[in-house]
Design a protein around this nucleic acid. Structure first.
Lengths: 147, 147
DNA sequence: CTTGGCGGTCTCCAATATAGACCAGGTCTC
DNA sequence: GAGACCTGGTCTATATTGGAGACCGCCAAG
């Protein structure tokens, strides 16, 4: 009984500690498989989308091919796809200048700028800690190589 | 010539504005395809790893099956894989208690806690703005449905 | 006239994600 | 004591996805 109680306290997805009970009774929960916020989260939380946001935040409005060069290794397909997603969700504005040849420029909308400001530290942190993490990997790999 | 200059200023991956010239001449650049920090970034920047970090930060140490229930929709395979990655990079500690039946508990290491503190706001932001983003999508889809 | 850039789309193939079975041990129920 | 279930995974088959590269119309430079 006691064991079961403890188990279920955690098993119940830690409801106590999640902010549902907070001040404003939030409707969204990224931890829930079918919550719309999860769907949104899943689309934003991939390397290309995050790098694109970081690039736009760091370098300002950019054309398609500038982004492709700036975000090293991204394929045109994934760049198009990620940009469409960001545009669709209201994070990025796509502007076509009807010149000859036409120019297409992508820029952050306020919503995207908000997110980009949260994402930028993540990239900086990764650069700062990359050394430590690579060292940890070597250690781990060495320890698990002995068979 | 002038056009080419401007183009190359941006094309050169916005080097001016990137922190390479800063105080400590950083060796790592997540924007570079072959930089080790990019490799690390690419592994961390996926929905499952981020949700796992968030869950560990929000609910403390958890067992495998607790995590599986907590992170809704994650498959055992992806959970195992993501946890191994986090463990390998020194972000998460895996402890086996040799009881019967054995218990396996995952917890954040200091490095992982640092990252989790940067990631948590991302989840909260998504929950706060999910409504706006879903509205933007509807608008976008409606605008692009007319053929 | 060939080459290159622009902003994509399309197709194909390899890699990856998911669903689900399976496993060895132990517990709980009936 | 038989059957069902929980534990922390692994393995396999299938669906989805990602990347490489071709192609497109249009324009400019050499």
């Amino acid at each position: 009984m006691t064991t079961e109680e403890v188990t279920r306290a955690r098993a119940g997805q830690c409801e106590e500690q999640r902010p549902t009970e907070g001040q404003a009774a939030q409707a969204f929960d990224v931890f829930a498989r079918l919550c719309p916020s999860r769907e949104v989260f899943a689309e934003l939380a991939d390397k290309w989308s995050l790098l694109i946001l970081m690039s736009l935040a760091a370098c300002g409005p950019q054309r398609f091919s500038e982004l492709q060069r700036g975000v090293g290794g991204v394929s045109r397909k994934m760049l198009t796809q990620s940009l469409r997603n960001l545009e669709r969700s209201g994070l990025v504005l796509r502007t076509v200048f009807p010149e000859t040849p036409p120019r297409v420029v992508y820029d952050l909308l306020p919503l995207g700028r908000e997110l980009a400001e949260l994402v930028a530290p993540l990239g900086q942190w990764t650069e700062r800690r990359a050394g430590q993490m690579m060292a940890a990997r070597q250690e781990f790999d060495a320890a698990h190589a002995e068979g």
